[in-house]
Nucleic acid binder design. Sequence first.
RNA 1: GGGGAUGUGGUGUAGAGGCCUAACAUGCGACCCUGUCAAGGUCGAGACCGCGGGUUCGAAUCCCGUCAUCCCCGCCA
Length: 587
Amino acid sequence: MYRTHTCGELRAHHDSQSVILAGWVHRRRDHGPLIFVDLRDRYGLTQVVFDAANDASVHAIASEARSEFVLQVTGNVRKRPAEAINPELGTGEIELVATAVSVLNPAKQTPLMINRDGNEEEPLRLKYRYLDLRRERMQRNLILRHRFVKFIRDFLDKENFIEIETPILTKSTPEGARDYLVPSRVHDGEFFALPQSPQQMKQLLMVAGYDRYFQIARCFRDEDLRADRQPEFTQLDMEMAFVEMEDVLDVVERLFTAMVPAVIPHKRTISPFMRLTYAEALERFGSDKPDLRYGLELIKLNDIVANSAFTVLSSAVASGGQVKGICVPSIANYSRKQIDEITDIARQNGAKGLMWAAVPADGGELRSSFAKQVSTDEMQAILAAMNAQPGDMVLIVADTTKVVTAVLDKLRREFANRLNLADPNLMAFAWVIDFPLLEWDAEDNRWNAAHHPFTAPLDSDVALMDTDPGNVRAKAYDLVLNGYEVASGSVRIHRREVQQKLFDLLGISRETSLAQFGHMLEAFEFGAPPHAGIAPGIDRIAMILADEATIREVVAFPKTQQAQDLMMGAPSPVDEKQLRDLHIKLR
RNA sequence: GGGGAUGUGGUGUAGAGGCCUAACAUGCGACCCUGUCAAGGUCGAGACCGCGGGUUCGAAUCCCGUCAUCCCCGCCA
């Protein structure tokens, strides 16, 4: 037996018991004849005392031990003297007096210091990920993620959902992200694709009658990485039959509303979740995934400036663009340099410039980049529309709708960050609904599915599919949380003729649609029930729960931005023989 | 594909054309020390400053290129 207890377990009532602990040397405090070792495992720390007066040979071994040695210690639990109790430690009322010790494995000097939350370059952490994962921060994150997923499984089980696994080796489809491909040895020249999501499988499970399905599903997309995007990631994949949008929203809303207090009690949600249409989200926040923990809403000034003598403003309106701004509190005293800095942010996001006006807190004269260009009345109307108070600065962009939206979204986030406007303990979930069904792809000159090609149109908009496809709204919904898209779903098409019509609109030929999606079209002819689903992103939500800025901090073995695993050294070349078996020739 | 940032002993930082034979902290090694809990003290070893080229009398420092990592745009049904 390697151990009788864990390093986080012993308490005062274990006093005088003989126990065995095993773990890593977290810290060693060497007083010569008396050595303290904090022994660590994932359950906690226990102070072990090595006293030369008790046993010189045991003490000698401890004096050789260093950080991250793996030790097995036999000893007697002893209550600490009152003045030596450590209230910071769960085991702080006791210590283990060693009577025997063995070094299960020594350790070289580690490239990371396990016992402090270091600030190393990330490649080093990723190369030695197994050491990084020993640290408290990563343990806390992975355990939090486990509890989160465990809560989901328990909750959905009680709600009558069943978890069903779907294949990892599946079929490439033309829509969507780039696929990861796996060559078939048996079929020369043919390939499996790793699933971008189990989308079709879960719909076919509905056709099969498993009317409440879920899966903690690994998904793969060969696209470029971001702080919140890995090439492989995990979704809570869900699908329900005989439901409408409200049924899906209801179960997900109840799930997360119950999850937050159970998994991370110091955070809170707002009930019910706020709801915004896609159009409203862009109009008010400049984003389809707005952070709703703070205001800084976008104010539209088109009506005020449409006839302005300042052509930067009036021509933006005349050419179909927008003039919008945000009112930022408490920065009226920004220096020229600071204003240049935020102007740069606007430029980097496509704006030609940034107009600003600062209302001094002390009632002094207005400072503004464009006061000379507009009349006093006009300026007053702008400031009034934006509700600018003394101390505030308004920031205004005039450009195409796309640029105005992108720039103000960026600035809104920037100032929320600078001014600490976002409460880190608030989980501001919100639904975004009424997405467009289609997006125009100017490059390929065709319509693309905005969500995916199985999404049903709003009943009221079906007629528009023939006359005005761009304005057809979808029965699609996103769940957003603190500025991230954390789930996306839709009511699906379950009738062959509607599905065929959508494929036609997407410019997918009858021939291609049969070859790629024939199984779906056929399945819809064998009694497919109405169904709908959603897929919350496990990594992103875990990241937010853990107060981390990147998804990598909640993934045990993440990949770099170049999609490499620095620990394993993947990807890597393979033997010529392996390639030959797969009928692959490199070029 | 594009824009930006970073790269100095094991680790984290300092350094802004000569004061750098590269400093500080921590870790590491040796010694001292019986109540610490980031223990303390003394002494010591350890980096040719990511890599390549250039400017200069002189480069960690300036310039060009390159590699790696990160952030963002494109991309992500």
